[in-house]
Amino acid sequence: MSTLEQKPARAEGRKDPWSQMLEKVGKNQDRQAYHALFEHFGPQIKYYAMANGLASHAEELVQEVFVSIWRRSCLYDWRKAAASTWIFTIARNQRIDMLRKMKRTSAEMQVETEDLWQIPGDNEDEPVTSLHRLMSERRIRESLSHLPEEQITVIAKVYMENKSHQMVADELDIPLGTVKSRVRLALNKLKVILQDQNV
């Protein structure tokens, strides 16, 4: 894994096609690229909204996410996140924002959603250091295919249905400890936990 990470990944060819398209939107307001992104990510985001209880607002969420992608595309930096990761964080934030706004007035929101949940690349001070950001999606995709289904199920519920570990335990009727150990095993494979030990 570490040998993979050490390889320079600067070559254009390493950039995945979606990241290249997102850059075109950011640099040239390329509407063809924007449309391609919509066709690829729109259905994913709509399902995401439906899975986490925003079914009656699913199309609204997709629209908000895409308007946000357009407005922010000039800030996108492929060295800081792959397009799919960047778009996931925007979808996540728009979902949180939508739920927050349903519950209260904007005057009550002293802290904005993006003060709490950042989009990769928003922080200019953050150095463009690690190539592992680029590698991480590829690595996760590969590792995920080796994970047992029961681990993937738990992670999917956390990310897609926005259930806490406790809620997942209740739903699957298994102890909380079992849920946590499945997640730990998975994160271990994905090297999130290994990173804990390198502190």
Binding site: T85, T89, P120, R133, R141, Y159
Partner: peptide, 12 residues
């Protein structure tokens, strides 16, 4: 960052 990428892959 890694976890956000996991989210993206789960969504996909």
């Amino acid at each position: 960052d890694t976890l956000d990428s996991l989210g993206a892959v789960m969504m996909e």
